[in-house]
Amino acid sequence: MQFDLSSVETATLVFIGTLVFGAILAAFVLTAGLISLAVLGAGKFTWVVVSTTLLAVVHGINAGWDRLVHRASAVDLPGDFQGQPAPSTGTYPRVILRDS
């Protein structure tokens, strides 16, 4: 016996068509959501890598500067600095500030 589609009622065909359209729409939404999650995950991963790298660079620069300052503060300069008159403050001697 051959299946004749003309014997199926219109309401049944509309119902089946609606179910198929809903399944296609749900598959599209799920695929779009999965792709957006993958893109957001890649963006988050990229942000973490870039921010961690920049933070490491800044910490490296700070550590290098700290070593340079402490090494420079350990150097003793021979001789004494003579007091020089300052033009606007009278005759106060200049003061050498050291890293304390």
Rank of each mutant, 00 (worst) to 15 (best):
A42E: 09
A74C: 01
P93G: 06
Q84W: 10
T31H: 08
G22V: 03
A56L: 10
G43D: 09
A26R: 07
A72E: 12
N62C: 06
Q84G: 01
L34K: 04
D99F: 03
A38R: 06
L68R: 06
D99T: 05
I24Q: 03
W47Y: 14
Q84H: 08
G64R: 02
K44N: 07
V29P: 00
R67N: 13
G60S: 10
R94W: 09
A42I: 12
K44Y: 11
V95W: 02
V14I: 14
A11E: 15
S88I: 12
R94Y: 14
A26I: 10
D4G: 01
L5A: 14
T89M: 08
I61R: 12
G90M: 02
T10C: 02
W65C: 07
F28Y: 10
T12K: 07
G41T: 04
L19H: 05
D76K: 12
L68V: 10
L68F: 14
R71Y: 07
F28G: 07
T53S: 09
V39Q: 10
H70K: 15
V14L: 13
S51H: 03
G79M: 02
G17T: 06
W47H: 08
D80I: 01
Q84S: 09
G41A: 13
F81V: 13
S7I: 11
I61M: 11
A32L: 10
T91W: 04
S73K: 02
Q82I: 11
V39Y: 03
S6F: 04
R94K: 13
V58M: 06
G22N: 14
H70V: 08
V29T: 10
I16N: 01
V69L: 14
P87G: 06
S7V: 13
I16D: 01
G64Q: 04
A26M: 11
A32H: 02
L37Y: 07
T10D: 15
L54P: 00
S100T: 13
S51A: 09
A74N: 14
H59K: 11
V95R: 06
T89W: 07
T10S: 11
A72F: 04
D66G: 05
V95S: 04
A63R: 08
T18F: 00
V20N: 02
A63H: 09
V50P: 00
F3K: 02
I24W: 07
A42F: 09
T10W: 04
D80G: 05
A32D: 08
P85F: 01
Q2K: 08
P87N: 06
T53L: 08
P85I: 03
F21N: 14
T53A: 12
